[in-house]
Design a binder for these strands. Structure first.
Lengths: 263, 263
DNA sequence: GAACGCTGTTCGGCAATACCGAACGGAACC
DNA sequence: GGTTCCGTTCGGTATTGCCGAACAGCGTTC
């Protein structure tokens, strides 16, 4: 996804990075040079040069027998390093582990990117169910508990701005799709301290999240726990909310922030 | 690290990718444009264009107040996706989790890259100790248990080749530094099925690993568990070795490979 | 077996384009 | 105010990455 079409970017670099995305979105067996060249609307020779450069840097690699291009190990290296360098991700890991172990749920944390959640770390629960939850993407705030927990920390005006920017897409019949309903939910979140996503993003999936704060007192992001609706009856949710709030406060402390007092 | 200096690569792309590495290796606060331009031996304007391109694609981002460049969220996105797309990493995760939970140790898996280990996934133990173990890097095979477990699956000739290529660097006084000693250890590994690294990579750190196989019967990689020497007395190691061997066999089965029978 | 289609790869020539240096605008510091 | 960093912008130059054609290696098909 070409996030912004700013001009005066370096063309060959843009092309190379788009090419990485193309391979990442491609099939498991990989893509051939010709397929990539076609998709990129570029000549085979030019594409070949770009591919070789990416392979030399291990961003891509060739599949073993067939000459197909696959994601390379540099991506894993950079992802791991970026995660280790991120103070929020690295400081939160032990707390996430603890929460996941206690609850048996999938735990994630999101950074606050101008009001939008970007999940940067995930710890899968022990169960067989695995949730498809990509990291490193700016997501819609109204369909995840971490996103709503972050929203609740913004001014009402900023929330309105974000809604106008991105809309309120319905992912399920239970998704919040109007501003008044969203604001009502936000108000609830502000008093009790945690947010609930009750099948608003995916059918049968519930998640509960709370915000944490940096040393400026700003909302740095949110932590959430995700599970199946069948595992999480309504009466459990309140108890779990308190538990997650406590863990969010632990992250706040690690970040050197002040824990918010709730009225 | 410019892995290979192959000519006829696209210069601007090479420059951009080296620039990413530079920022990744830089300080936590990030690097300024001028610092980067100096380091890259390039003009500020050219460096600026490259940086803008990388920022637009979220490979890099600007630090909040100061104009400094930091790793961007695309790296986390790509790393997570690459890991999810890797059949070995994704199929092994539940088994790694189980092993880590049972033993309380840090569990890692490495891919077999032409005889060299490349760790692609890590699950930290619950303890406070965290090991510095980067992923996605081709490592020396003789100083890790997973590396030695992979070596043991190669022909003696190939082992000799690898040793000539990369040498036997001493990381600690206990590191194996001569070919005869390495071969003696390899023979032990071949009979008992698991490899032991007894403070050969880092003082006070022990790890135990075993190989797993793909559907061609080839060694696809190795799994290992790492802990402090103080937590792992010698009499525990044999028991743990068997346990890890069992988990390696479970991975083999998931990959559709045949479990090796040991004489 | 030879022709065909498809791969991936290499090479020369042209033109686009990424480089450089200089100049500008802003912030911080003395 | 002066000075010295910073980041940013702009045009001219020539470097360089693009294209198309030609070649080589497989599989299939006739």
């Amino acid at each position: 996804m070409p996030e912004k079409k700013n001009s005066s970017n370096i063309g060959s670099v843009t092309k190379a990075l788009n090419l990485v995305d193309l391979v990442m979105a491609g099939p498991k067996e990989g893509l051939t040079l010709s397929e990539i060249a076609r998709e990129m609307k570029s000549s085979k020779s030019a594409t070949h040069a770009t591919l070789r450069t990416l392979v030399d840097h291990n961003y891509l690699r060739m599949s073993e027998p067939g000459p197909r291009y696959l994601p390379g190990m540099a991506l894993i290296r950079l992802g791991d390093l970026a995660s280790a360098r991120d103070p929020i991700a690295s400081l939160s890991r032990s707390i996430m582990n603890e929460l996941s172990k206690k609850t048996g749920l999938t735990v994630r944390i999101a950074r606050n990117y101008d009001g939008y959640p970007v999940f940067i770390e995930r710890i899968d629960g022990p169960g067989v169910v695995r949730f498809f939850t990509p990291l490193g993407i700016r997501e819609l705030p109204h369909v995840s508990s971490a996103g709503k927990a972050i929203l609740a920390e913004l001014s009402d005006e900023r929330i309105r701005e974000i809604v106008e920017e991105s809309g309120l897409e319905a992912r399920t019949p239970k998704s919040i799709t109007t501003l008044p309903k969203l604001m009502a939910d936000i108000r609830k979140i502000r008093v009790r301290g945690y947010a609930v996503d009750d099948e608003e993003d995916a059918q049968g999936v519930v998640c509960i999240g709370a915000a944490f704060y940096d040393h400026f007192g700003q909302c740095a992001g949110g932590i959430s726990a995700t599970g199946l609706k069948s595992e999480l009856p309504t009466e459990e949710i309140a108890k779990l909310g308190i538990k997650i709030l406590k863990h969010a406060e632990a992250i706040t402390k690690k970040l050197g922030g002040k824990v918010k007092v709730r009225g």
